[in-house]
């Protein structure tokens, strides 16, 4: 046993082992496992193995629980939603904001900024029975358009043009709005200009769209369901 060298001046620091012997002794130790205890096994390595296995198991559970579906766009580990699961639902104020910007691009030309339309030519949206009425009917009008003459709230409106189709796949259709866009713009007109009807969900538009998918001509007032 090498004692602490007497020459223990901190200005020099005596070594207690030579480099050669450090190498040689440890090279031997590297392959020397502890002697089994009288019971026939060494306790320390088993304990270590047990702890390590436990740790690895715990880490695996933690990782799987917080993997965030391995989707690069999931930022909260505990959310394991799979991509593509569930519809995209925007908060109401954003739906209305999007609808408003769509309205400003197209509808505003006939129905005007205040939604009152032009008497005798373009029907008003403010307080309109059709706008505030059944979702089925107003979705159909948006998808495929509406031919003159239009009767609304007891008045008749006639122009040289018709209400154009906004849905996709109509001959001569210019807009090709997705179901989502139709739901935005409808939600907007049903909640502005003094209207206070429920927002139209995208899924509802899709449902109606499927029912009338084969149609290639605009509606007339008489073809539409008359329910309010």
């Amino acid at each position: 046993m090498s004692a602490i060298p007497s020459n223990s001046d901190p200005r020099l620091e005596a070594a207690a082992a030579s480099d050669d012997s450090i190498q040689r002794v440890h090279a031997g130790l590297l392959h020397t496992k502890p002697e089994p205890e009288p019971g026939g096994y060494a306790l320390a390595p088993l304990l270590l193995l047990g702890l390590m296995s436990g740790l690895i198991l715990g880490c695996c559970i933690f990782f799987v629980q917080n993997r965030g579906a391995f989707d690069p766009l999931v930022y909260n580990g505990h959310l394991n939603t799979k991509p593509g699961e569930g519809p995209v639902v925007l908060p109401p104020e954003q739906i209305i904001a999007k609808g408003k910007s769509l309205y400003a691009q197209t509808c505003i030309q006939c129905h005007m900024a205040d939604g009152k339309g032009v008497p005798g030519k373009y029907p008003p949206l403010a307080g309109s029975d059709i706008v505030n009425g059944s979702e089925d009917r107003v979705i159909r009008i948006l998808l495929h358009g509406l031919k003159d003459p239009i009767t609304l709230n007891g008045a008749t409106f006639t122009t040289s043009e018709k209400m154009p189709p906004f849905g996709p796949g109509m001959p001569g259709g210019l807009y090709n709005y997705s179901d989502a866009k139709i739901s935005y713009v409808l939600s907007y007109v049903r909640s502005d200009f003094g209207n206070k009807s429920a927002l139209v969900e995208e899924s509802k538009v899709t449902e109606v769209h499927k029912q009338v998918a084969a149609r290639t001509t605009s509606w007339t007032m008489s073809e539409l369901p008359a329910s309010p």
Partner: peptide, 21 residues
């Protein structure tokens, strides 16, 4: 940054207990 990446980093921090021990 992706949740799984954050979790992988955390898990590795726990696993460092093996060499530490």
């Amino acid at each position: 940054v992706p949740a799984w990446t954050q979790t992988a980093g955390r898990t590795a921090s726990f696993m460092l207990l093996v060499p530490l021990g």
